[in-house]
């Protein structure tokens, strides 16, 4: 790779600003949930833009931003091989177990 010598095409505007996916935690104790995306030149600005764009109505107590390029997603074609094997393992779910009704805090 040679050193960049000139301003890359499109560098004059947000065309070259990466896309960030935004995740918001609604309140303490909940997981961060994907709410949308935005463009920002860097992570710090992405975080601040995320606050202004996605939490104007107190929708959040915490924000994550992740470069969209850094997300590896399973493809719809892989759905069967990825997720179906979990379907018959009902013993992972607490409702699988019969316990006496008078035992508290289970």
């Amino acid at each position: 790779m040679s050193e960049p010598t000139a301003v890359p095409a499109g560098a004059h505007d947000e065309r070259s600003w990466p896309l960030w996916e935004v995740f918001v935690r609604g309140k303490r104790g909940l997981a961060h949930t994907h709410v949308g995306s935005l463009h920002a030149p860097d992570a710090e600005m992405a975080l601040r833009n995320g606050r202004d764009v996605y939490t104007r109505r107190q929708e959040g107590v915490s924000i994550w931003v992740v470069r969209a390029d850094d997300i590896t997603a399973s493809s719809p074609d892989e759905k069967d091989s990825f997720f179906d094997p979990a379907a018959d393992k009902i013993y992972r779910h607490p409702s699988f177990y019969d316990v006496p009704e008078d035992v508290e805090y289970l």
């Binding site: 947000e14 601040r48 833009n49 202004d52 764009v53």
Partner: peptide, 11 residues
């Protein structure tokens, strides 16, 4: 200068 900044300055 960008739409996100419209929102930030409004805040």
């Amino acid at each position: 200068p960008q739409i996100e900044e419209d929102m930030a300055l409004a805040n």
